[in-house]
C-alpha cells in the first residue's frame, strides 16, 4: 500500500458560530512535509479552518462543527481524542508572538512540563533541540533564564515556534505569523519555516500574497467559507482555474 502523503484530511467540514455558517462544506487534504498556504479575504473562514484543526473552537460558545477532520487517519473530533494530546501533535502560532512571562527555558519546556516530564536532562535536551530548530539557539543560548518578554518581536515569535516544537508535533499551524513583525524578522521566520518543513508539515494562513507564493508548496484559496481552489502554488499563481482566485491574487478585490 502506498504511504499516505496526507497528514490532515478534512471532509465536508461545516462550522457554525451560532447561526452564521463560517465554513460551508470544506474538503481539503494537507500534505506531509509541505508548506500549505491558506489565503483569502477577511472573513473567508481561513482562520476558522486553522482553529478547527487544533480544536481551538472548543472554547468558543455556540460553535457547531460537522464533518470530519483526521490527523493521520485519526478523527480529531472523536470522543476518544484528548484535546491536550491533539495540541501536542498540532502546534499553533499566532499573529502576535505570545510567549509566557517566564524565562526562555520555561517557555520552551512548558508543553513537556504540563505533560509531566521532570527529567532535567530530557528537558535540557528538548530546549536545545527546539531552539536550534527554530533557528534562535545561537542568539539566546547564553541567556536561557532571562525573561522571554525581553526579546524582540521576531525573537519572541521564534521562541513560540520552539515552544511548539518541544512536544515533537506533526503539524504546525501558523495564523499570520509574521504580520506583526518587521521585514527582517519576517524573513527570518520564513527561512526557519523552509528548514522546518523537512521534519514537519506546516499550514500557514496569510494575507501576504508574496509570502504565500514564495514559501508554500500548495495554496488554498477561500472565499465566503468555501474552498474555491486548491493546488500547487505555482499553478495557483501562474494559471489559476477559477476567476475568483485570479481576481483575488491579482489584487482586484480583497
Amino acid at each position: 500500500m502506498a504511504e499516505n502523503k496526507n497528514v490532515i484530511t478534512v471532509q465536508d467540514l461545516h462550522l457554525y458560530y451560532g447561526q452564521l455558517e463560517a465554513l460551508r462544506g470544506v474538503s481539503i487534504d494537507f500534505r506531509k512535509n509541505e508548506i500549505t498556504a491558506v489565503i483569502g479575504p477577511s472573513g473567508c473562514g481561513k482562520s476558522s479552518l486553522l482553529k478547527t484543526i487544533n480544536r481551538l473552537n472548543d472554547l468558543i460558545p455556540n460553535v457547531t462543527v460537522t464533518g470530519t477532520v483526521k490527523l493521520n487517519d485519526q478523527d480529531i473530533y472523536a470522543p476518544s481524542m484528548d484535546a491536550v494530546e491533539l495540541r501536542k501533535q498540532v502546534g499553533m502560532l499566532f499573529q502576535q508572538p505570545n510567549p509566557f512571562p517566564f524565562s526562555i527555558y520555561d517557555n520552551v519546556i512548558y508543553g513537556l512540563r504540563i505533560s509531566g516530564e521532570k527529567n532535567k536532562q530530557v528537558l535540557d535536551e528538548a530546549v536545545e533541540r527546539s531552539l536550534q530548530a527554530a533557528a534562535i539557539w545561537d542568539e539566546v543560548k547564553d541567556r536561557l533564564h532571562e525573561n522571554a518578554m525581553g526579546l524582540s518581536g521576531g525573537q519572541q515569535q521564534r521562541i513560540c515556534i520552539a515552544r511548539a516544537l518541544a512536544t515533537r508535533p506533526k503539524v504546525l499551524l501558523m495564523d499570520e505569523p509574521t504580520s506583526a513583525l518587521d521585514p527582517i524578522s519576517s524573513s527570518e521566520i520564513e527561512r526557519t519555516m523552509l528548514e522546518l518543513k523537512n521534519d514537519y508539515s506546516i499550514v500557514i494562513v496569510t494575507r501576504n500574497m508574496q509570502q504565500a507564493s514564495r514559501m508554500s508548496d500548495r495554496t488554498a484559496f477561500f472565499l465566503q467559507g468555501e474552498l474555491i481552489e486548491y493546488g500547487q502554488t505555482r499553478d495557483i499563481f501562474l494559471q489559476p482555474q477559477q476567476k475568483e482566485t485570479e481576481d483575488y491574487i491579482s489584487g482586484r478585490f480583497g
Binding site: 508574496q210 507564493s213 514564495r214 502554488t233 505555482r234 499563481f237 501562474l238
Partner: peptide, 9 residues
C-alpha cells in the same frame, strides 16, 4: 523565469 517572477516577485 516565469515561475520565479510569479512566485518570488
Amino acid at each position: 523565469s516565469f515561475e520565479m517572477i510569479a512566485l518570488q516577485q
